[in-house]
């Protein structure tokens, strides 16, 4: 049975690819090149990292000391909290692929997704210890927390840039330009989604009112 498994389906490969995310964090240029070109990354590991990121975000709400994070629980919607990570990520992947595929980007959609997820590693890696750390500090020491917390985001953003650069085989300037363009594309996507849902809503209400009219006439 084991023998019939392909290489990428084994646990061994999964662990190896997951560990490789740490290498990517410390050696971004080298790491993200190997990620796709040497096939050292896996979608499974990317999914795991994404899951940990979402989990860090949720656990942060409950377990961070109230000094740093005060939650108005009446208004918390866990699905919305999850969506704050997943929705921008989906928009980013689609927008980035749609743009770069027109401008000689070498990355496929799945590779963009994988590389972006690999770049999220600093977030869970820093936020989980920070949750514990937040519970042993006072207000006077709050600066440490905020700086480290901000650092986790800054590193993630830099890693995403490095990842895009290697995946698409772009130069630095082109990467930054397309990152900004992708942000704009995300806005366009949001606009199209809004348009789409409001059109669907209008369409449905058209048929509902027509049905009502028919029932009214028949009677």
């Amino acid at each position: 049975m084991l023998a019939s498994l392909k290489k990428k389906e084994t646990y061994e490969n999964y662990w190896k690819s997951l560990k490789f995310s740490l290498y990517c964090m410390t050696h971004p240029m080298d790491g993200y090149w190997d990620l796709t070109h040497e096939k050292r990354g896996s979608i499974a590991a990317a999914n795991t990292i994404l899951f940990l990121t979402v989990l860090a975000r949720l656990l942060k709400l409950q377990y961070t000391s109230f000094i740093f994070c005060r939650v108005y629980w009446e208004d918390v919607n866990i699905f919305l909290e999850i969506a704050t990570v997943l929705f921008p990520l989906a928009l980013w992947c689609v927008g980035n692929w749609a743009l770069t595929t027109l401008f000689e980007g070498k990355g496929r959609m799945s590779q963009i997704y994988m590389a972006t997820c690999y770049a999220l590693v600093p977030y869970p890696l820093i936020q989980f210890p920070l949750i514990i750390f937040s519970n042993v500090v006072t207000v006077d020491e709050a600066e440490f927390y905020s700086i480290v917390s901000a650092a986790s985001l800054v590193i993630a953003v830099l890693l995403i840039l490095a990842a895009m650069m290697q995946i698409h085989e772009y130069k630095m300037g082109k990467t930054i330009f397309f990152a900004l363009a992708t942000l704009f594309a995300m806005l366009v996507e949001v606009f199209i989604l809004l348009l789409f849902f409001s059109m669907i809503g209008q369409g449905i209400s058209y048929f509902i009112s027509m049905g009502r009219e028919i029932i009214f006439r028949v009677q």
Binding site: I67, R70, T138, V139, D140
Partner: peptide, 10 residues
């Protein structure tokens, strides 16, 4: 949510 007094006590 009294962070200042909490910090004093903590």
């Amino acid at each position: 949510y009294d962070e200042d007094n909490y910090s004093k006590a903590y």
